[in-house]
Amino acid sequence: MKRPFRKVRKRVPYDILSRRGHALITAIPYIWLLVFFLIPCLFLLRISFSDAILARPPYTDIVSILPEGLLQIRLNISSYLTLFRDELYQRGLITSFAIAGSSTFCCLLIGYPMAYTIARSSEKVRPILQLLVILPFWTSFLIRVYAWIALLSPTGVINGLFLRFGLISEPLALMQTPFAVCLGIVYAYLPFMVLPLCVSITRIDTELLDAAHDLGCRPLKTFLAITLPLSFSGMIAGSVLVFIPAIGEYVIPELLGGSETLTIGRIVWNEFFVNMSWPVASALAILLILFVVLPISCWQRWREVRA
C-alpha cells in the first residue's frame, strides 16, 4: 500500500537561528558601515557648514553650548556661496563632465565592437578573449597611467620615434592636454565597458537573429533592429561603470593633464591639501554626492526594481 504523501514542513535555514543570532550577524557589518561610511558622510556635511580657521583642525565647530545654557548651531553657508560665485568651480564642474562624458563615449565606441566580436566568437575562445581584456587591469592602476606618461611625455617613446624619423623637429606637447587625460581614462577603464557589454550581447537569443536572417533582413538592419536595442542594458551598465570613477578621478588628470584640466577631483584635493580650506573641500564633496552619486545610484536602483 502506498503511504500517503505527507507534506514536510519546509524549514528555511537560519530561521531556527534565534533572533539574537540574526541581529548579531547583521549588526557587525552594519555597525562598521555606519561608523566608517555613513557617519563620515555626515561629518562631511557638518564641516561644509563650518568656518575655516587657522588652527588644528582647521575648522570651527558648528555646535556650541553658550554660557546661558543655550545650544547654538551655526550654519555657515559661505563655502557653498563660494562654490556658486567663483567661476573656478563651475569651470571645474564643466571640465569634469566634459572629460568623463567624452571618455565614456570613446570607451563605448571602442568597447562595443570588441565586445560584439568577443560575444560572437565560439564558446571555446570566448573566456580566453575575455581574460585578455581583464589581464592588463590586474597590473596596477598607477602603472597603466604611467604607461601613457612613458608614451606621451616630451622625452617619451612617441616623441622619440617621431624625432628620430624626422617627422617633427621638436617634441610635441602630447601630455598635459585634455586629450591625454581622456586617453588615460579610456585606457584605465575600458575593461569596465567591454565586460558588461559582452555579457549582454552573449545573452541575446540567437534564434531572433536567425529568424531575422530567414525573413530576409540584411545584417546591418538585424544589428540595428535587434542586437543594438537588446544590448542597451549592457551599454548603460558599462557607461555607468566608466563614468562614475571618471567624474571624480584625481590621479589621471593630475598626472596626464595640465592646468586646463582642473577637474573636481583635483580641486577637492587642492582645496584640502594646498589651501587647507576644509569647509570648501567638504562642500564640493557634498555637491558631488548630491548631484552625481545619488542620482546615478537612485536611477540604477529604479532600473533594478523595474527589471
Partner: peptide, 30 residues
C-alpha cells in the same frame, strides 16, 4: 526582512559608486 534592511543594502553598495576622493576626505574628517 529586518528593520533597516533598505539602509543596510544601501550602505553596502554605496562605497561602489562613491568617488575615491570623497571616501578618503570623509574618512579623514572622521
Amino acid at each position: 526582512r529586518f528593520r533597516g534592511k533598505t539602509l543596510f543594502t544601501g550602505l553596502v553598495t554605496a562605497p561602489l559608486v562613491m568617488p575615491d576622493i570623497v571616501t578618503g576626505l570623509s574618512l579623514l574628517l572622521l
